[in-house]
């Protein structure tokens, strides 16, 4: 996955910068068009585990973290024993799993640590050990 992300990002640069590399005037500013949350891999603005959960995770895992079932299902994060080893959810948030997209480009180390800590201490989960940003960085 590491190389996948890197190559993908490089490919975007290659295919889309050509046209604007030599334009006159100042280079476009990173956020020239405001917060722009329609971007595919643009970083999520939320800070703090609860805000990140409600802005990102809740879309699939639901407000009560109990998931949902249709033709397929979204797993419950509530009372989820797979969360016992913190590295497991960190890895899944970073790299994705099955239908779940990866968030390595959209959430930074602090954000991932925060949201994993939030989920591991809410929704009936009571894990005491905390994930630190360095732990996330090590798994990238």
């Amino acid at each position: 996955m590491k190389s996948t992300i890197r190559v993908a990002a490089a490919a975007i640069l290659l295919t889309t910068t050509a046209a604007m590399a030599d334009t006159a005037g100042p280079a476009p500013k990173p956020d020239a068009h405001g917060p722009n949350i329609s971007g595919f891999f643009s970083p999520f603005p939320f800070q703090g585990g609860e805000a990140i959960y409600k802005g990102v995770c809740q879309g699939c895992h639901m407000a009560d973290a109990k998931g949902a079932v249709g033709a397929g299902m979204y797993p419950a994060l509530a009372k989820n024993e797979n969360l016992e080893t913190a590295a497991y959810p960190v890895g899944i948030v970073l790299k994705g799993q099955k239908a779940m997209p990866f968030f390595a480009l959209q959430l930074n180390d602090q954000q991932i640590a925060d949201v994993v800590n939030y989920v591991r201490t809410h929704f009936g989960n009571k894990y005491k050990d905390k994930v630190k940003p360095e732990d996330v960085k090590a798994l990238r």
Binding site: K2, I5, R6, A9, A10, I12, L13, T15, T16, T17, M20, A27, P28, K29, P30, D31, A32, H33, G34, N36, S38, G39, F40, F41, S42, P43, A104, L105, R140
Partner: peptide, 30 residues
Amino acid sequence: MTDQPIAPSRRSLLSMIGGVAGSAAMYHAM
């Protein structure tokens, strides 16, 4: 991986593509 070297350019690019050209162009690019 470290995303520092590519992050600023990537962000600026995608914000330009996605911000104004709309989601169709963004979708295509991504």
